[in-house]
């Protein structure tokens, strides 16, 4: 079995996921990551899987590969997600289905398969991604916020179901961060969101890493089923 900590991060091709890869590599972990596309970069200690997380067979194959290579999984970070901001009346069914599949089904499949591997050592830390759009009930994000509400409930119930196996499940709800995910959102809408926060600024990658570090710390073994929103927007 691998001696080093093994971390799985989904959605590593860019943005927060890409940042978290480097964050965990810097702390000496081995990082397994995935995205729907290949990545055009390589880092020592990082292994990439080309996986659609809403595809059960592909998720199972990725976790089997991690088990064969390392024999352990300490941390799983369900960062992969898609958003499509639009008025509900202008949201096609196909878009709605895609948002639910990637965010809800994808998070569930990764949680389930990760927990199967983690239970063998009776230890694991799972971190899911919600969004500030849930407590703020943002117009134009009905499907995205609904999907992330489902992720929050998954987090709370999986926390109970996985607790007997020494696995904690928590979620972070980031504020807008300057990534590709919000590139298409009008600036004034983003500013409106920022103005509703207790701390009125964009979030940073470091803000997210800090909360994740807290959730995945071995001493956080009594912290589970929790959602922490950044910026005081919850």
């Amino acid at each position: 079995m691998t001696e080093q900590e093994v971390v799985l991060i989904t959605g590593t091709s860019r943005g927060i996921g890409r940042f978290l890869v480097e964050h965990f590599l810097q702390r000496g972990a081995l990082v397994e990551g995935c995205a729907r596309s290949p990545v055009d970069w390589e880092l020592p200690g990082y292994t990439h899987h080309q996986v659609d997380i809403s595809n059960e067979g592909q998720v199972k194959a990725m976790l089997s590969a991690i088990q064969r290579r390392h024999g352990r999984l300490d941390i799983a970070i369900n960062n992969a997600g898609i958003a499509a901001m639009n008025h509900a009346l202008l949201t096609p069914g196909e878009t709605a289905s895609r948002i639910l599949n990637i965010n809800v089904l994808g998070s569930f499949l990764v949680c389930r398969e990760a927990a199967k591997l983690m239970r063998r050592r009776n230890y694991g830390r799972i971190v899911n991604f919600s969004t500030i759009a849930v407590p703020l009930r943002l117009e134009g994000e009905a499907l995205y916020a609904a999907a992330k509400s489902a992720v929050e409930m998954l987090t709370r119930i999986l926390a109970r179901e996985f607790a007997p196996f020494g696995i904690t499940v928590n979620a972070i709800g980031p504020t807008p961060i300057e990534t590709d995910l919000i590139r298409s959102v009008p600036r004034e809408k983003l500013q409106h969101i920022i103005d509703t926060l207790a701390i009125r600024r964009f979030g940073t990658f470091a803000d997210i890493a800090h909360v994740i570090d807290f959730f995945v710390h071995p001493a956080s073994n009594y912290i589970t089923g929790q959602v922490i929103y950044l910026g005081g927007g919850g």
């Binding site: 199972k60 089997s64 088990q67 199967k116 239970r119 007997p164």
Partner: peptide, 22 residues
């Protein structure tokens, strides 16, 4: 019920790892 869940997962993993059956 929890032990039943555990044995089901454990058997799935043993069948895959020891016999290549998914």
């Amino acid at each position: 019920s929890l032990a039943l869940v555990t044995i089901v997962v454990d058997l799935e993993q043993r069948l895959e790892e020891e016999h290549g059956l998914t």
